[in-house]
Design a protein around this nucleic acid. Structure first.
Lengths: 205, 205, 205, 205
DNA sequence: GAATAAACGAGACGGTACGTCGCGTCTTAAG
DNA sequence: CTTAAGACGCGACGTACCGTCTCGTTTATTC
């Protein structure tokens, strides 16, 4: 879900080459600890020990604990846009189901609050968040809405940001803040209401 | 907005009574520092100095920095339910505007992420959050929806939780996560879509 | 052994009179704790609780922890000069045995090091120590030596301070510093050597 | 004079080696502060600042303030046994003069009381004290007495411990407890008495 | 008998130091 | 040049204790 990205250059060239297997070991160790003890209790020392390496190796790859945690909180950030289901309603449901899954991942639940805590202080984090994560979701929503227009379900594409807010917000808020699970029935209610809202936004009664 | 609550007992009874003026001084100091330097940079020592007291006095009232920050992040938690505006749409707009204001407060923006970070680990925090903050908002929404039913705008009261998720979620997500401001026009779009969604939920076309 | 003395005035006169039973309760509590946990681990709060009273009552009697500990470390400071045994050697042995007993008392062993730690910094403590404790012992030694002169064991009274240093020092050093017990045989050796030394000091071969 | 010894392992081997220059800086800082403000007023923070380092570096070397103070109270513990002066009396005077100097050192006067305060509670401290400090002095006294036997001043070597008690005790007691200076005349009196006592111990009239 | 004045218990208060912990950097030897 | 190991500077945390204070209450003496 989140993708904030690592920072360090590859370091290819002269000298001893970087041990690529450490990349995975470090991330795996970080993810495990994240899930086991939680963000605040993860320490760089413990991560290094778990990964069978040293702090120096970690700091050569991530410039801070926050960077490492961000990286560890990311699934793969791979763009796997849900396929066309044939209707606006089902497309939104499929997207909602994927977002729900992403947000429910333990590592995501650990890391997300700390990312949004930094948003206020770091324009850079704020921009990376919008540029990668938000932009991806909005692109997917735009694709879904465009398909609906092609399908003649909608006359025009409504404000993408508004749709995004309502779908993503409802899920984020419920899962992260209210700490409730979203079952399929509830997701269906949200999506149904959202579809009605979308029609209202584009001026259909 | 947030109310997590202090923990310490009142201490009434025998012995020197708590200096009630310190309660305010400590909270004020914490709020000022929170707004000035941000959650992570607030220190208990600095708070004590700013409040003109000592760490011991703070720890007599809050059992950790987190508790103090939570308390400081609370506005007043006063229930000031928006008055009846005469229509469902305007009632929701007014409520949305108040929630927007609460969430935009600097102290709330600082503290909220840390609260939701603890939700996963502390059932107690989770319950306090739901029991106070969420319950209050849902009660207000229920009142609004009930008035709409009385007004014959709606045939029955729809699922309150769903409405809450969509309104609160859209605002929280936009303000805290996406880090965008919500102007009146955008709030109107959200509320309009939500009203349409509410009608859909209760089975009107 | 040590007598440093309490400080507070009696407080007789108008108002509620001091509860004299507290005097004993406080001292007893302090002595018990001193023996149980040691000087550093005795706290004023614990002493108050043990004595069934409050810190205020203690601080009305002693102006600091050090004062209380000093008082608690004192036996009775009662002057009970050993009776005339009939010979210099036996008089010194009897005195040595009493000093040995005083120094071996658990409370004395706890308090004495802290008293001598203050000697360097507080001329007042230094003077009180010399004026009460040292002066008493030297008076006793002078009495013993005078009796020996009367008995014709010695031609004149030697330097009292030197005799005091050697007897008191040997015992203090062995018990407090070297942490060895002084049995009667060893005490006898010390006293015998001291008697010979005394004769040397007054010029007898 | 006192040697209690540091505790931490050398830390030789892999990893960044201990900065040996810090060892000296920390000890020097501790000694300075000890002499300037006294044991109780020395703080670990101030010591760290004075040494140009951090508390962590100190605690890596000493496991508590007491350990550091003990180490700082030690002169050099270098065994510099006084040379043969040609007579028992002068050998003892020379040794007494050196002990007097050691005990008069400000750091020793500060630390010694606290060491002997711990003797009662810590068998380890008690043993270290006896094993290093007492053993060294007794070895020196034994050497002196053996030379006297070779010189035919004495028929046999008397009980070393008794001689040690009387010499060391008289000095310790006078300097640390009674808080009086020991001038050469007084030291001579003590030594003369002691020599007579030694002869008595070995059976000469 | 009421007023006064101080002792009492309980416990909060300001201050200060302790010892611990984690971050991110630096330094070594080994590869 | 990377790695493993671990020391380093920094700075905050939460705890503990001292000696003071502020209450409400109790207990004598004085008016």
């Amino acid at each position: 879900m989140l993708y904030i990205g690592t920072v360090s250059a590859t370091g290819q060239g002269i000298g001893r080459p970087r041990d690529r297997s450490l990349d995975g070991a470090i991330l795996a160790a970080a993810r495990e600890l994240l899930a086991e003890v939680g963000y605040a209790q993860v320490t760089m020392d413990a991560t290094a020990v778990r990964a069978g390496t040293s702090k120096a190796a970690i700091y050569r790859r991530y410039k801070s604990k926050a960077e490492l945690m961000f990286a560890a909180g990311v699934h793969g950030a791979e763009a796997n846009p849900p396929a066309d289901t044939g209707s606006l309603r089902d497309d939104l449901f499929a997207l909602g189901a994927r977002i729900r899954a992403d947000m429910s991942a333990p590592t995501a639940r650990e890391v997300a609050p700390h990312v949004i805590a930094e948003v206020v202080h770091s324009p850079e984090v704020s921009q990376r968040l919008r540029g990668v994560f938000v932009a991806t979701e909005r692109r997917e929503i735009e694709a879904i809405l465009s398909r609906a227009v092609l399908r003649r379900e909608l006359p025009v594409v409504p404000t993408v940001a508004t749709v995004h807010r309502m779908l993503g917000g409802a899920l984020f808020f419920t899962i992260m803040v209210i700490d409730e699970r979203v079952d399929d029935a509830e997701l269906a209610r949200v999506v149904d209401a959202l579809v009605a809202g979308i029609h209202a936004l584009v001026g259909q009664t």
